[in-house]
């Protein structure tokens, strides 16, 4: 354990933690744009600067380990001014188009500009002006909105391990790109969208087909319905429509999804969904009420059972349905019909 003082209060904390981690643990909110607990510290965005007494300059709290006797100030004037300078620099090279930006309401740059009272960038001059990469089918990259925090590059490298993207060029011209700038759609990218899920600004954006503001939506935690990994995720719901998916960060999938989990939700509200029972009459399907459909089903089941016995009926349950539904289905076949002819696609 290590003893240190933060904002005038003494704490005893675990050794090997960073100042940022300790502050998070004790509830002091330190702004970050490039930090992600799952990744190696990067110390690029400079938003997490804190004053450590005795140090020559302000220190990045994400990459500074706690030491015995350390005296830390996280929100004094010097620190707040430095963070404002960082935001000023970022906003000086960032389009101020929050009114129409899809990310508005879930943008960390917007949130911090509000929190620190930075209205616009004061460094007038050239701004980045590069084309949007639209070549991926699921998301876009707008270099003009990119703050080069590197979260996307590092998630692709350290967690997804696909290494599809990296930084290209140097200095002011730097952008995130694929090798030889061939475009995301022509790269090693597997469209997992794990970069999109961590982008703090509007640079990497899903291709949504519904416009929404985050505050219009509710998040519903659920289990992905594709493969057997069972990733946890939040459905973003606006009205009666699922409009997006975010990975869960506090479960075993640790903020990761794949292309189907992240972007494969659009079937839910697809126009082709079956919306009413259908009965085949003279070779054509016609719409029917639940009552009509049930009546027909019951009469046929009873008829078959009476003529040929319960074992002339069979049912296929589904690995796509819930446990409760599978339980109900086998109970239906066994208890209500009287046969063990029930199986599902486990072998397929």
């Amino acid at each position: 354990m290590v003893k240190l003082t933060i904002n005038g209060i003494d704490y005893e904390v675990e050794r090997d933690k960073t100042v940022l981690q300790v502050c998070n643990d004790i509830g002091i909110d330190i702004p970050t744009l490039c930090h992600d607990e799952r990744l190696e510290p990067y110390a690029a965005c400079r938003m997490c600067l804190v004053e450590i007494e005795g140090a020559k300059n302000l220190q990045t709290s994400c990459s500074t380990k706690v030491r015995e006797g350390m005296v830390v100030h996280t929100h004094n004037d010097k620190v707040m001014d430095a963070r404002r300078d960082v935001l000023d620099l970022l906003l000086s090279n960032h389009p101020i188009d929050c009114l129409t930006c899809e990310k508005s309401g879930q943008c960390k740059l917007q949130d911090y500009a509000y929190e620190y009272g930075v209205r616009e960038g004061t460094y007038v001059g050239e701004m980045r002006n590069k084309p949007i990469d639209d070549s991926n089918h699921f998301y876009t990259y707008d270099p003009d909105k990119c703050i080069l925090c590197g979260l996307c590059v590092r998630v692709c490298d350290e967690l997804q391990n696909t290494n599809a993207i990296g930084f290209e060029d140097r200095g002011f011209g730097t952008i995130v790109a694929t090798p030889f700038d061939q475009g995301l759609g022509n790269s090693a990218c597997v469209s997992c969208g794990n970069c999109v899920s961590v982008c703090p600004v509007g640079a990497l954006m899903p291709k949504y087909d519904t416009k929404f503001r985050l505050w219009e939506t509710k998040k519903v935690r659920t289990t992905c319905s594709y493969c057997g990994v069972g990733c946890q995720m939040d459905l973003l719901v606006k009205g009666d429509k699922v409009v997006g998916v975010e990975p869960a960060f506090d479960t075993f999938n640790n903020g990761l999804l794949c292309v189907k989990g992240k972007f494969g939700y659009k079937f839910i509200n697809h126009g082709d969904r079956l919306k009413t029972p259908l009965i085949k009459k003279d070779g054509e399907f016609v719409e029917a009420s639940w009552d009509e459909a049930y009546k027909l089903i019951i009469s046929k089941i009873e008829d078959t059972k009476a003529k040929y016995g319960a074992d002339a009926l069979a049912g296929l349950s589904s690995a796509r349905c819930t446990n409760e539904e599978n339980y109900m289905f086998q109970k239906f076949m066994r208890a209500a019909i009287g046969t063990n002819n029930v199986d599902h696609c486990a072998r397929l």
Binding site: S318, A319, C321, T322, N323, N326, Q330, C345, A346
Partner: peptide, 21 residues
């Protein structure tokens, strides 16, 4: 590695001809 989201569960729940849950 189970292919479908609930192939483990539907087997556990006995959507199988020889088993109860």
């Amino acid at each position: 590695l189970r292919g479908q989201n609930n192939v483990q569960g539907s087997s556990d729940m006995a959507a199988l001809p020889s088993d109860y849950p």
